[in-house]
Design a protein around this nucleic acid. Structure first.
Length: 505
RNA sequence: GAGCAUAUAGCUCAGUCGGUAGAGCAUCUCACUUUUAAUGAGAGGGUCGAUGGUUCGAGUCCAUCUAUGCUCACCA
Protein backbone atom coordinates (compact mmCIF):
# COMPACT_ATOMS: atom_id res chain seq x y z
CA UNK A 1 0.00 0.00 0.00
CA UNK A 2 1.27 3.39 -0.89
CA UNK A 3 2.15 6.00 1.65
CA UNK A 4 -0.62 8.23 0.30
CA UNK A 5 -3.37 5.75 0.99
CA UNK A 6 -2.33 5.24 4.57
CA UNK A 7 -2.45 8.92 5.25
CA UNK A 8 -5.56 10.15 7.00
CA UNK A 9 -7.35 13.02 5.33
CA UNK A 10 -7.60 14.82 8.64
CA UNK A 11 -5.43 14.71 11.67
CA UNK A 12 -7.40 11.73 12.89
CA UNK A 13 -6.46 8.11 13.11
CA UNK A 14 -7.90 5.64 10.68
CA UNK A 15 -10.22 3.23 12.37
CA UNK A 16 -10.24 -0.42 11.39
CA UNK A 17 -13.04 -0.04 8.86
CA UNK A 18 -11.32 2.84 7.13
CA UNK A 19 -8.11 0.87 6.95
CA UNK A 20 -9.91 -2.14 5.52
CA UNK A 21 -11.55 -0.04 2.83
CA UNK A 22 -8.19 1.41 1.80
CA UNK A 23 -6.75 -2.09 1.65
CA UNK A 24 -9.60 -3.15 -0.62
CA UNK A 25 -8.97 -0.11 -2.78
CA UNK A 26 -5.37 -1.19 -3.21
CA UNK A 27 -6.41 -4.78 -3.99
CA UNK A 28 -8.72 -3.49 -6.69
CA UNK A 29 -5.90 -1.43 -8.16
CA UNK A 30 -3.61 -4.46 -7.98
CA UNK A 31 -6.23 -6.36 -10.01
CA UNK A 32 -5.99 -3.62 -12.63
CA UNK A 33 -9.39 -2.16 -11.81
CA UNK A 34 -9.70 1.61 -11.80
CA UNK A 35 -11.75 2.37 -8.68
CA UNK A 36 -12.50 5.87 -9.99
CA UNK A 37 -13.42 5.60 -13.67
CA UNK A 38 -14.69 8.53 -15.69
CA UNK A 39 -18.27 7.87 -16.68
CA UNK A 40 -21.04 5.34 -16.93
CA UNK A 41 -23.97 5.33 -19.33
CA UNK A 42 -27.08 5.29 -17.17
CA UNK A 43 -30.22 4.25 -19.04
CA UNK A 44 -32.69 3.72 -16.18
CA UNK A 45 -33.50 4.78 -12.66
CA UNK A 46 -34.59 2.60 -9.77
CA UNK A 47 -38.06 3.86 -9.03
CA UNK A 48 -39.26 4.01 -12.66
CA UNK A 49 -38.05 0.42 -13.10
CA UNK A 50 -40.13 -0.66 -10.11
CA UNK A 51 -43.13 1.30 -11.36
CA UNK A 52 -42.94 -0.05 -14.90
CA UNK A 53 -42.16 -3.70 -14.15
CA UNK A 54 -44.65 -6.28 -15.31
CA UNK A 55 -44.35 -9.99 -14.66
CA UNK A 56 -43.38 -11.93 -17.74
CA UNK A 57 -41.55 -8.94 -19.20
CA UNK A 58 -37.90 -8.15 -18.75
CA UNK A 59 -36.06 -4.95 -19.59
CA UNK A 60 -32.38 -4.52 -20.15
CA UNK A 61 -31.17 -1.69 -17.96
CA UNK A 62 -28.04 0.17 -16.92
CA UNK A 63 -28.32 1.77 -13.51
CA UNK A 64 -25.87 3.48 -11.19
CA UNK A 65 -25.86 4.54 -7.58
CA UNK A 66 -24.71 3.84 -4.07
CA UNK A 67 -24.61 0.38 -2.52
CA UNK A 68 -26.80 0.55 0.60
CA UNK A 69 -27.06 -3.10 1.71
CA UNK A 70 -25.22 -6.29 0.80
CA UNK A 71 -26.39 -9.85 1.43
CA UNK A 72 -23.69 -12.26 0.48
CA UNK A 73 -24.60 -15.90 -0.12
CA UNK A 74 -21.37 -17.41 -1.25
CA UNK A 75 -21.39 -17.65 -5.03
CA UNK A 76 -24.34 -15.30 -5.34
CA UNK A 77 -25.20 -12.02 -3.65
CA UNK A 78 -27.90 -9.42 -3.38
CA UNK A 79 -27.41 -5.75 -2.79
CA UNK A 80 -29.55 -2.65 -2.85
CA UNK A 81 -28.50 0.17 -5.09
CA UNK A 82 -29.76 3.65 -4.34
CA UNK A 83 -29.96 6.33 -6.99
CA UNK A 84 -31.64 9.72 -7.07
CA UNK A 85 -35.03 8.10 -7.59
CA UNK A 86 -34.94 5.40 -4.91
CA UNK A 87 -33.63 1.90 -4.31
CA UNK A 88 -33.65 -1.30 -6.27
CA UNK A 89 -32.22 -4.70 -5.49
CA UNK A 90 -29.48 -6.18 -7.65
CA UNK A 91 -28.80 -9.90 -7.95
CA UNK A 92 -25.24 -10.95 -8.69
CA UNK A 93 -24.08 -14.47 -9.58
CA UNK A 94 -20.56 -15.70 -9.98
CA UNK A 95 -21.68 -17.75 -13.00
CA UNK A 96 -22.84 -14.59 -14.77
CA UNK A 97 -19.94 -12.33 -13.93
CA UNK A 98 -17.06 -14.74 -14.04
CA UNK A 99 -14.44 -15.43 -11.37
CA UNK A 100 -12.45 -12.23 -11.63
CA UNK A 101 -15.41 -9.88 -11.61
CA UNK A 102 -17.08 -11.70 -8.76
CA UNK A 103 -13.81 -11.60 -6.84
CA UNK A 104 -13.74 -7.83 -7.40
CA UNK A 105 -17.34 -7.55 -6.27
CA UNK A 106 -16.34 -9.14 -2.96
CA UNK A 107 -14.17 -6.06 -2.43
CA UNK A 108 -17.15 -3.72 -2.72
CA UNK A 109 -18.49 -2.12 0.43
CA UNK A 110 -21.70 -0.55 1.53
CA UNK A 111 -21.37 3.05 0.40
CA UNK A 112 -19.52 2.36 -2.85
CA UNK A 113 -20.87 3.89 -6.05
CA UNK A 114 -21.41 1.21 -8.70
CA UNK A 115 -22.85 0.78 -12.17
CA UNK A 116 -24.90 -2.28 -13.09
CA UNK A 117 -25.99 -3.63 -16.45
CA UNK A 118 -28.55 -6.39 -16.44
CA UNK A 119 -32.18 -7.34 -16.85
CA UNK A 120 -35.19 -6.90 -14.62
CA UNK A 121 -36.92 -9.83 -12.92
CA UNK A 122 -38.86 -10.70 -9.80
CA UNK A 123 -37.22 -12.86 -7.13
CA UNK A 124 -38.76 -15.87 -5.43
CA UNK A 125 -39.51 -13.65 -2.48
CA UNK A 126 -41.31 -11.24 -4.77
CA UNK A 127 -38.93 -8.30 -4.98
CA UNK A 128 -38.48 -6.63 -8.36
CA UNK A 129 -34.74 -6.69 -8.99
CA UNK A 130 -32.02 -6.32 -11.58
CA UNK A 131 -30.12 -9.48 -12.51
CA UNK A 132 -26.60 -8.19 -13.12
CA UNK A 133 -24.77 -9.21 -16.28
CA UNK A 134 -21.93 -6.85 -15.59
CA UNK A 135 -20.87 -4.74 -12.69
CA UNK A 136 -18.53 -1.78 -12.48
CA UNK A 137 -17.11 0.12 -9.55
CA UNK A 138 -17.60 3.85 -10.17
CA UNK A 139 -16.21 5.21 -6.90
CA UNK A 140 -14.79 3.48 -3.86
CA UNK A 141 -16.11 4.75 -0.54
CA UNK A 142 -13.42 5.05 2.13
CA UNK A 143 -15.59 5.66 5.18
CA UNK A 144 -18.09 3.37 6.83
CA UNK A 145 -21.59 4.76 6.43
CA UNK A 146 -24.35 4.56 9.02
CA UNK A 147 -26.49 1.61 8.06
CA UNK A 148 -30.13 1.92 8.94
CA UNK A 149 -32.01 -1.33 8.53
CA UNK A 150 -35.58 -1.40 7.43
CA UNK A 151 -38.21 -4.01 7.96
CA UNK A 152 -41.77 -4.09 6.79
CA UNK A 153 -44.21 -4.75 9.58
CA UNK A 154 -47.85 -4.86 8.51
CA UNK A 155 -47.00 -2.89 5.38
CA UNK A 156 -45.27 -0.13 7.34
CA UNK A 157 -41.58 0.47 7.17
CA UNK A 158 -39.82 0.24 10.49
CA UNK A 159 -36.34 1.73 10.56
CA UNK A 160 -33.75 0.46 12.98
CA UNK A 161 -30.71 2.40 14.11
CA UNK A 162 -31.47 5.39 11.92
CA UNK A 163 -28.71 7.98 11.58
CA UNK A 164 -30.31 10.46 13.93
CA UNK A 165 -27.65 12.45 15.78
CA UNK A 166 -28.67 16.00 14.90
CA UNK A 167 -25.22 17.45 15.16
CA UNK A 168 -23.74 14.90 12.80
CA UNK A 169 -26.73 15.13 10.47
CA UNK A 170 -26.21 18.88 10.10
CA UNK A 171 -22.42 18.80 9.98
CA UNK A 172 -22.36 15.94 7.49
CA UNK A 173 -25.52 16.71 5.57
CA UNK A 174 -24.21 14.69 2.62
CA UNK A 175 -24.46 11.58 4.79
CA UNK A 176 -27.85 12.61 6.14
CA UNK A 177 -29.09 12.97 2.57
CA UNK A 178 -28.06 9.61 1.26
CA UNK A 179 -28.99 7.77 4.43
CA UNK A 180 -32.32 9.39 5.25
CA UNK A 181 -34.79 9.46 2.35
CA UNK A 182 -37.21 11.72 4.27
CA UNK A 183 -34.52 14.40 4.37
CA UNK A 184 -34.08 14.24 0.61
CA UNK A 185 -37.83 14.67 0.26
CA UNK A 186 -37.88 17.77 2.41
CA UNK A 187 -35.27 19.47 0.25
CA UNK A 188 -36.89 18.39 -3.00
CA UNK A 189 -40.08 19.98 -1.77
CA UNK A 190 -38.28 23.13 -0.73
CA UNK A 191 -36.92 23.39 -4.23
CA UNK A 192 -40.39 22.77 -5.64
CA UNK A 193 -41.74 25.49 -3.37
CA UNK A 194 -39.25 28.03 -4.66
CA UNK A 195 -39.75 27.13 -8.30
CA UNK A 196 -43.52 27.41 -7.94
CA UNK A 197 -43.17 30.87 -6.37
CA UNK A 198 -40.93 31.86 -9.25
CA UNK A 199 -43.44 30.50 -11.77
CA UNK A 200 -46.25 32.43 -10.06
CA UNK A 201 -44.34 35.71 -10.25
CA UNK A 202 -42.96 35.13 -13.74
CA UNK A 203 -46.46 34.36 -15.01
CA UNK A 204 -47.51 37.81 -13.85
CA UNK A 205 -44.67 39.43 -15.72
CA UNK A 206 -42.48 40.42 -12.78
CA UNK A 207 -38.76 40.59 -13.33
CA UNK A 208 -36.39 38.48 -11.26
CA UNK A 209 -33.44 40.68 -10.31
CA UNK A 210 -30.24 40.62 -8.28
CA UNK A 211 -29.10 43.41 -5.99
CA UNK A 212 -25.96 43.97 -3.91
CA UNK A 213 -25.22 41.81 -0.91
CA UNK A 214 -22.20 43.90 0.05
CA UNK A 215 -23.55 47.31 0.94
CA UNK A 216 -21.88 50.50 2.18
CA UNK A 217 -25.05 51.42 4.10
CA UNK A 218 -27.41 48.76 5.35
CA UNK A 219 -31.13 49.35 5.55
CA UNK A 220 -34.60 48.11 4.82
CA UNK A 221 -35.04 46.34 8.14
CA UNK A 222 -34.31 46.72 11.82
CA UNK A 223 -31.46 44.40 12.65
CA UNK A 224 -27.78 44.27 13.46
CA UNK A 225 -25.56 43.58 10.43
CA UNK A 226 -22.41 41.60 9.82
CA UNK A 227 -19.59 44.02 9.16
CA UNK A 228 -16.66 43.51 6.85
CA UNK A 229 -13.79 45.49 5.47
CA UNK A 230 -13.36 46.25 1.78
CA UNK A 231 -9.60 46.42 1.34
CA UNK A 232 -9.49 48.17 -2.03
CA UNK A 233 -11.69 50.99 -0.76
CA UNK A 234 -10.35 50.82 2.77
CA UNK A 235 -13.96 51.11 3.88
CA UNK A 236 -16.41 49.32 6.15
CA UNK A 237 -19.06 47.37 4.31
CA UNK A 238 -22.06 45.43 5.54
CA UNK A 239 -23.70 42.21 4.45
CA UNK A 240 -27.24 43.15 3.63
CA UNK A 241 -29.99 42.74 6.20
CA UNK A 242 -32.59 43.37 3.49
CA UNK A 243 -32.74 44.32 -0.17
CA UNK A 244 -35.83 46.54 0.08
CA UNK A 245 -34.18 49.85 -0.70
CA UNK A 246 -32.50 48.47 -3.83
CA UNK A 247 -35.69 46.94 -5.17
CA UNK A 248 -37.47 50.26 -4.75
CA UNK A 249 -34.70 51.97 -6.69
CA UNK A 250 -35.55 49.56 -9.52
CA UNK A 251 -39.21 50.58 -9.35
CA UNK A 252 -38.01 54.19 -9.63
CA UNK A 253 -36.05 53.01 -12.67
CA UNK A 254 -39.27 52.04 -14.40
CA UNK A 255 -39.81 48.33 -13.88
CA UNK A 256 -43.43 47.51 -13.03
CA UNK A 257 -42.66 44.54 -10.86
CA UNK A 258 -39.40 43.14 -9.48
CA UNK A 259 -38.58 40.31 -7.16
CA UNK A 260 -35.52 38.69 -5.65
CA UNK A 261 -34.93 35.58 -3.58
CA UNK A 262 -32.45 37.28 -1.30
CA UNK A 263 -29.99 35.77 1.10
CA UNK A 264 -30.03 38.18 4.04
CA UNK A 265 -27.64 38.26 6.96
CA UNK A 266 -28.42 39.31 10.50
CA UNK A 267 -25.92 39.33 13.28
CA UNK A 268 -28.12 37.82 15.94
CA UNK A 269 -28.50 34.60 17.86
CA UNK A 270 -29.48 31.30 16.29
CA UNK A 271 -32.48 29.32 17.31
CA UNK A 272 -35.06 26.91 16.03
CA UNK A 273 -36.47 29.84 14.04
CA UNK A 274 -33.33 31.82 13.22
CA UNK A 275 -30.28 31.23 11.12
CA UNK A 276 -27.82 34.10 10.67
CA UNK A 277 -28.19 33.82 6.91
CA UNK A 278 -31.68 33.20 5.64
CA UNK A 279 -33.70 33.62 2.50
CA UNK A 280 -36.34 36.22 1.98
CA UNK A 281 -38.45 36.75 -1.08
CA UNK A 282 -39.17 40.39 -1.62
CA UNK A 283 -41.28 41.70 -4.42
CA UNK A 284 -42.51 45.13 -5.39
CA UNK A 285 -45.26 46.06 -7.80
CA UNK A 286 -45.90 49.56 -9.12
CA UNK A 287 -49.34 51.18 -8.99
CA UNK A 288 -50.61 48.77 -6.33
CA UNK A 289 -51.28 49.08 -2.60
CA UNK A 290 -51.29 46.81 0.41
CA UNK A 291 -54.92 45.76 -0.11
CA UNK A 292 -53.97 44.37 -3.50
CA UNK A 293 -50.94 42.74 -1.95
CA UNK A 294 -53.14 40.88 0.55
CA UNK A 295 -55.11 39.32 -2.27
CA UNK A 296 -51.95 38.47 -4.19
CA UNK A 297 -50.42 36.90 -1.09
CA UNK A 298 -53.48 34.71 -0.62
CA UNK A 299 -53.24 33.54 -4.22
CA UNK A 300 -49.51 32.98 -4.01
CA UNK A 301 -49.59 30.93 -0.82
CA UNK A 302 -52.52 28.76 -1.81
CA UNK A 303 -50.94 28.13 -5.22
CA UNK A 304 -47.59 27.24 -3.71
CA UNK A 305 -49.07 25.01 -1.01
CA UNK A 306 -50.96 23.09 -3.66
CA UNK A 307 -47.87 22.77 -5.84
CA UNK A 308 -45.82 21.40 -2.95
CA UNK A 309 -48.33 19.28 -1.05
CA UNK A 310 -51.24 18.88 -3.41
CA UNK A 311 -53.43 20.59 -0.84
CA UNK A 312 -53.89 23.96 0.80
CA UNK A 313 -53.99 22.40 4.26
CA UNK A 314 -50.95 21.67 6.40
CA UNK A 315 -50.61 20.16 9.86
CA UNK A 316 -48.70 22.04 12.51
CA UNK A 317 -48.73 20.20 15.80
CA UNK A 318 -52.37 19.70 16.72
CA UNK A 319 -53.59 22.26 14.24
CA UNK A 320 -54.85 21.83 10.73
CA UNK A 321 -54.02 25.05 8.93
CA UNK A 322 -55.79 26.01 5.73
CA UNK A 323 -54.04 28.35 3.32
CA UNK A 324 -57.04 28.62 0.99
CA UNK A 325 -58.23 32.24 0.63
CA UNK A 326 -59.62 34.40 2.03
CA UNK A 327 -57.61 34.97 5.20
CA UNK A 328 -59.00 36.81 8.17
CA UNK A 329 -58.09 40.53 8.26
CA UNK A 330 -57.76 42.27 11.54
CA UNK A 331 -56.24 45.60 12.41
CA UNK A 332 -53.60 45.52 15.10
CA UNK A 333 -55.89 47.45 17.45
CA UNK A 334 -58.73 45.01 16.82
CA UNK A 335 -56.46 42.04 17.39
CA UNK A 336 -55.21 43.45 20.69
CA UNK A 337 -58.74 44.23 21.79
CA UNK A 338 -59.88 40.74 20.90
CA UNK A 339 -57.14 39.02 22.87
CA UNK A 340 -56.64 41.37 25.82
CA UNK A 341 -59.86 43.38 26.04
CA UNK A 342 -57.80 46.58 25.95
CA UNK A 343 -58.49 49.40 23.54
CA UNK A 344 -55.25 50.97 22.34
CA UNK A 345 -56.75 53.19 19.67
CA UNK A 346 -55.76 56.84 19.95
CA UNK A 347 -53.95 56.33 23.25
CA UNK A 348 -50.97 58.38 24.35
CA UNK A 349 -47.64 56.85 25.30
CA UNK A 350 -48.48 57.24 29.02
CA UNK A 351 -51.87 55.60 28.56
CA UNK A 352 -50.31 52.72 26.60
CA UNK A 353 -47.74 52.28 29.33
CA UNK A 354 -50.60 52.06 31.84
CA UNK A 355 -52.34 49.39 29.72
CA UNK A 356 -49.12 47.41 29.59
CA UNK A 357 -48.88 47.61 33.38
CA UNK A 358 -52.46 46.34 33.71
CA UNK A 359 -51.43 43.40 31.53
CA UNK A 360 -48.41 42.81 33.81
CA UNK A 361 -46.07 43.45 30.90
CA UNK A 362 -42.65 44.73 31.92
CA UNK A 363 -41.28 47.26 29.47
CA UNK A 364 -38.06 49.14 28.98
CA UNK A 365 -38.46 52.73 30.13
CA UNK A 366 -37.08 54.27 26.93
CA UNK A 367 -39.28 52.63 24.30
CA UNK A 368 -41.86 54.68 22.42
CA UNK A 369 -45.58 54.09 21.95
CA UNK A 370 -45.21 52.12 18.72
CA UNK A 371 -42.85 49.72 20.37
CA UNK A 372 -45.19 49.36 23.37
CA UNK A 373 -48.03 48.33 21.06
CA UNK A 374 -45.71 45.92 19.30
CA UNK A 375 -44.74 44.38 22.64
CA UNK A 376 -48.37 43.94 23.68
CA UNK A 377 -49.14 42.33 20.34
CA UNK A 378 -46.11 40.07 20.51
CA UNK A 379 -46.85 38.96 24.03
CA UNK A 380 -50.60 38.41 23.95
CA UNK A 381 -51.73 38.03 20.35
CA UNK A 382 -49.20 36.70 17.86
CA UNK A 383 -48.81 33.15 19.19
CA UNK A 384 -52.58 32.71 19.30
CA UNK A 385 -53.11 33.41 15.62
CA UNK A 386 -53.04 29.93 14.19
CA UNK A 387 -55.03 30.18 10.97
CA UNK A 388 -53.60 32.65 8.43
CA UNK A 389 -54.43 36.15 9.60
CA UNK A 390 -53.53 39.51 8.11
CA UNK A 391 -52.74 41.97 10.87
CA UNK A 392 -53.05 45.45 9.39
CA UNK A 393 -52.44 49.09 10.19
CA UNK A 394 -49.34 49.38 12.32
CA UNK A 395 -48.18 52.35 14.38
CA UNK A 396 -46.10 54.74 12.31
CA UNK A 397 -43.09 54.69 14.65
CA UNK A 398 -42.38 51.03 13.88
CA UNK A 399 -42.61 51.41 10.12
CA UNK A 400 -40.28 54.07 8.72
CA UNK A 401 -40.61 52.87 5.10
CA UNK A 402 -44.41 52.64 4.98
CA UNK A 403 -46.96 55.03 3.60
CA UNK A 404 -49.23 56.80 6.06
CA UNK A 405 -52.66 55.28 6.34
CA UNK A 406 -55.17 56.86 3.97
CA UNK A 407 -57.74 57.34 6.77
CA UNK A 408 -56.34 56.41 10.17
CA UNK A 409 -54.09 58.99 11.84
CA UNK A 410 -50.86 57.76 13.40
CA UNK A 411 -50.99 54.47 11.49
CA UNK A 412 -49.45 53.16 8.31
CA UNK A 413 -50.63 50.88 5.53
CA UNK A 414 -48.80 47.77 6.52
CA UNK A 415 -49.74 44.17 7.11
CA UNK A 416 -48.08 41.13 8.47
CA UNK A 417 -49.39 37.68 7.74
CA UNK A 418 -49.35 35.49 10.83
CA UNK A 419 -49.64 31.73 10.44
CA UNK A 420 -49.25 29.17 13.23
CA UNK A 421 -48.34 31.97 15.61
CA UNK A 422 -45.42 33.15 13.49
CA UNK A 423 -44.90 36.08 11.18
CA UNK A 424 -44.62 34.84 7.63
CA UNK A 425 -44.92 38.00 5.55
CA UNK A 426 -44.48 41.72 6.03
CA UNK A 427 -45.88 44.12 3.45
CA UNK A 428 -46.59 47.80 2.88
CA UNK A 429 -48.02 50.39 0.70
CA UNK A 430 -44.51 51.72 0.10
CA UNK A 431 -43.70 55.22 1.20
CA UNK A 432 -42.99 57.24 -1.95
CA UNK A 433 -43.23 60.76 -0.51
CA UNK A 434 -39.55 61.66 -0.53
CA UNK A 435 -39.88 64.46 2.01
CA UNK A 436 -41.90 62.30 4.41
CA UNK A 437 -39.33 59.55 3.93
CA UNK A 438 -36.52 61.93 4.85
CA UNK A 439 -38.32 62.95 8.04
CA UNK A 440 -38.93 59.34 9.01
CA UNK A 441 -35.32 58.36 8.50
CA UNK A 442 -34.21 61.40 10.48
CA UNK A 443 -36.53 60.16 13.23
CA UNK A 444 -34.70 56.82 13.03
CA UNK A 445 -31.39 58.64 13.34
CA UNK A 446 -32.64 60.16 16.60
CA UNK A 447 -33.60 56.69 17.89
CA UNK A 448 -30.14 55.53 16.96
CA UNK A 449 -28.68 58.41 18.91
CA UNK A 450 -30.82 57.33 21.87
CA UNK A 451 -29.06 53.97 21.73
CA UNK A 452 -31.33 51.89 19.49
CA UNK A 453 -28.69 50.09 17.45
CA UNK A 454 -31.33 48.51 15.23
CA UNK A 455 -32.71 51.82 14.02
CA UNK A 456 -32.24 52.47 10.31
CA UNK A 457 -29.48 54.52 8.78
CA UNK A 458 -30.14 57.48 6.56
CA UNK A 459 -29.46 56.43 3.00
CA UNK A 460 -29.02 59.63 0.96
CA UNK A 461 -28.92 57.86 -2.36
CA UNK A 462 -32.19 56.11 -1.62
CA UNK A 463 -33.77 59.46 -0.79
CA UNK A 464 -32.37 60.91 -4.00
CA UNK A 465 -34.04 58.08 -5.92
CA UNK A 466 -37.38 58.81 -4.26
CA UNK A 467 -36.99 62.49 -5.08
CA UNK A 468 -36.97 61.60 -8.77
CA UNK A 469 -40.37 60.04 -8.15
CA UNK A 470 -41.51 56.51 -7.39
CA UNK A 471 -44.99 55.40 -8.42
CA UNK A 472 -47.38 54.17 -5.76
CA UNK A 473 -46.02 50.71 -4.99
CA UNK A 474 -46.94 47.63 -2.98
CA UNK A 475 -44.09 45.58 -1.54
CA UNK A 476 -43.76 42.43 0.48
CA UNK A 477 -41.16 40.27 2.14
CA UNK A 478 -41.85 36.59 2.65
CA UNK A 479 -39.63 34.50 4.91
CA UNK A 480 -38.82 31.59 2.64
CA UNK A 481 -37.30 29.39 5.33
CA UNK A 482 -40.30 29.96 7.57
CA UNK A 483 -42.63 29.17 4.71
CA UNK A 484 -40.65 26.00 4.04
CA UNK A 485 -40.98 24.98 7.68
CA UNK A 486 -44.72 25.52 7.49
CA UNK A 487 -45.28 23.70 4.21
CA UNK A 488 -42.85 20.88 4.89
CA UNK A 489 -43.94 20.19 8.44
CA UNK A 490 -40.54 20.90 10.00
CA UNK A 491 -40.27 22.49 13.42
CA UNK A 492 -36.66 23.66 13.11
CA UNK A 493 -35.21 26.00 10.51
CA UNK A 494 -32.13 23.74 10.43
CA UNK A 495 -34.23 21.02 8.88
CA UNK A 496 -35.07 23.18 5.87
CA UNK A 497 -31.52 24.49 5.32
CA UNK A 498 -28.97 22.17 3.73
CA UNK A 499 -26.14 23.61 5.77
CA UNK A 500 -27.40 25.38 8.89
CA UNK A 501 -24.90 27.55 10.70
CA UNK A 502 -22.84 25.57 13.21
CA UNK A 503 -19.93 26.52 15.40
CA UNK A 504 -16.65 25.19 14.01
CA UNK A 505 -15.96 21.59 15.01
C1' G B 1 -26.45 36.26 26.38
C1' A B 2 -29.19 32.90 30.58
C1' G B 3 -31.23 28.10 32.36
C1' C B 4 -31.85 22.76 31.68
C1' A B 5 -30.25 18.28 29.21
C1' U B 6 -26.86 15.32 26.34
C1' A B 7 -21.64 13.56 24.79
C1' U B 8 -19.37 5.58 25.68
C1' A B 9 -17.09 1.17 19.13
C1' G B 10 -18.42 3.27 12.18
C1' C B 11 -24.18 3.83 13.56
C1' U B 12 -28.07 3.21 17.46
C1' C B 13 -27.74 2.59 22.53
C1' A B 14 -26.93 -0.08 27.70
C1' G B 15 -23.38 0.44 31.65
C1' U B 16 -26.52 -0.78 38.89
C1' C B 17 -23.37 1.18 44.87
C1' G B 18 -16.73 4.03 42.29
C1' G B 19 -13.62 -2.03 41.39
C1' U B 20 -10.34 -5.09 34.40
C1' A B 21 -15.77 -1.75 28.77
C1' G B 22 -21.15 -4.20 26.90
C1' A B 23 -25.27 -5.28 23.10
C1' G B 24 -27.58 -5.04 18.14
C1' C B 25 -26.28 -3.61 13.38
C1' A B 26 -21.72 -2.53 10.62
C1' U B 27 -16.42 -4.68 9.89
C1' C B 28 -12.99 -9.17 9.26
C1' U B 29 -12.49 -14.91 8.53
C1' C B 30 -15.12 -19.52 7.17
C1' A B 31 -19.73 -21.89 5.05
C1' C B 32 -23.83 -20.89 1.84
C1' U B 33 -26.01 -19.77 -6.33
C1' U B 34 -33.37 -16.24 -5.49
C1' U B 35 -31.74 -13.51 -0.16
C1' U B 36 -34.03 -9.33 2.20
C1' A B 37 -33.38 -6.73 9.82
C1' A B 38 -30.63 -13.32 5.15
C1' U B 39 -28.62 -17.47 8.12
C1' G B 40 -24.80 -20.48 10.97
C1' A B 41 -19.74 -20.55 13.25
C1' G B 42 -15.65 -17.64 14.84
C1' A B 43 -12.74 -12.87 15.35
C1' G B 44 -11.24 -7.84 15.66
C1' G B 45 -12.61 -2.93 16.94
C1' G B 46 -12.75 2.08 22.60
C1' U B 47 -7.96 8.60 24.53
C1' C B 48 -15.82 6.53 27.63
C1' G B 49 -16.07 14.93 24.32
C1' A B 50 -11.42 17.78 26.60
C1' U B 51 -8.56 19.33 30.88
C1' G B 52 -7.90 19.31 35.96
C1' G B 53 -9.35 17.36 40.90
C1' U B 54 -11.13 13.74 44.87
C1' U B 55 -9.83 8.49 45.63
C1' C B 56 -5.80 2.75 46.66
C1' G B 57 -8.90 2.85 42.20
C1' A B 58 -13.15 7.27 38.00
C1' G B 59 -17.11 5.88 32.00
C1' U B 60 -19.38 6.59 36.99
C1' C B 61 -18.17 11.72 41.99
C1' C B 62 -16.52 17.28 41.77
C1' A B 63 -14.77 21.71 38.89
C1' U B 64 -13.70 24.15 34.37
C1' C B 65 -13.99 24.10 29.17
C1' U B 66 -15.96 22.56 24.19
C1' A B 67 -19.90 21.03 20.99
C1' U B 68 -24.97 19.85 20.32
C1' G B 69 -30.31 19.86 21.59
C1' C B 70 -34.45 22.22 24.12
C1' U B 71 -36.47 26.61 26.62
C1' C B 72 -36.01 31.89 27.29
C1' A B 73 -34.08 36.71 25.49
C1' C B 74 -33.29 39.43 20.39
C1' C B 75 -35.29 38.90 15.78
C1' A B 76 -37.75 37.06 10.29
Amino acid sequence: MSDLEQRPTHAEDLNDQMRQRREKLQKLRDANINPYPYSFDVTHFAQPILDAFQDGMSDTVAIAGRVMTIRNMGKASFFHLQDSSGRIQVYVRKDDLGDAAYQAFKLYDIGDIVGVKGFTFRTKMGEISVHAQSLELLAKSLRPIPVAKEQEVDGKKVVYDAFSDREMRYRQRYVDLFVNPDVRDVFRKRSKMISSIRAFLDARGYLEVETPILQPIYGGASARPFTTHYNALDATFFLRIANELYLKRLIVGGFDGVYEFAKNFRNEGMSRFHNPEFTMLEFYVAYKDYIWMMETTEQLLSTVATAVNGSTTVRVGDHEIDLAPPYRRLSMAEAIKEHTGKDIEGKSEAELRQIARELSLHLDANIGSGKIIDEIFGEFVEARLIQPTFITDYPIEMSPLTKKHRSKAGLVERFELIVAGKELCNAYSELNDALDQRERLEEQAKLRARGDDEAMSLDEDFLRALEYGMPPTAGIGIGIDRLAMLLLGQDSIRDVLFFPQMKPE
